[in-house]
Design a protein around this nucleic acid. Sequence first.
DNA 1: CGTTGGATCTTCT
DNA 2: GAAGATCCAACGC
Length: 212
Amino acid sequence: MLKQSQLIPQSFYREDDPVEIAKELIGKIIVTETNGVRTSGMITESEAYWAPHDLASHARNFTRTPRNEMMYAAPGKAYVYICYGIHQLFNVVTGPEEVPHAVLIRAIEPIEGIEIQKKRRKFLLTKAALSSGPGSLTKCLDISMNDNGLELWNPKSRLRIENHNVKIQDNEIVSTPRIGVESSGESALLHYRFVLKTSKYLSAMSFTKKYF
DNA sequence: CGTTGGATCTTCT
DNA sequence: GAAGATCCAACGC
């Protein structure tokens, strides 16, 4: 049984700098519990969204809609939304309350319950990796819209983030522009994406873009 | 190998 | 009506 002290406290998420938090989240562990069974994965790729100036953010210019309401909530909550009508994307809400920063989790390396995670993916695992990509890892870990708003620091939540003390050197992390935000003007150029370059569990675009 | 199109929900025009 | 923080299978070379 893992100790509760390994949970990342809410104070970690309150920092008013989502870029720093996105970088520090590399190597941390996302845990979900379904029917009492744990599955988990280590974060290998993340992206910061720094509202209101960030035109790629759902909360650009303090835009507020039913969908992105959770971005304005307390730090350390989950913001889950549906992308392209199909995929559920998982974000961590950061910054003080009413400041709509967020960090998108784009890829994980499966740690616990790998066989369960494989079963959650329906397609035949030919080319694509198990949990590489923001819409894929949510399937692996059984994250859905039902988890929107969960407190990631709360031991009672079925969705949490833990620190397993994995040591990541600074030179193992690369920053690049973000994926899929090309139409967001100057915001598209910001190096708000972080990848653990030694990992094979990175989103497909990591390789076609040839950022590193 | 690389490229293309379908799936199909929210928001903005 | 179009675009978007995507993924995968089916093509074509």
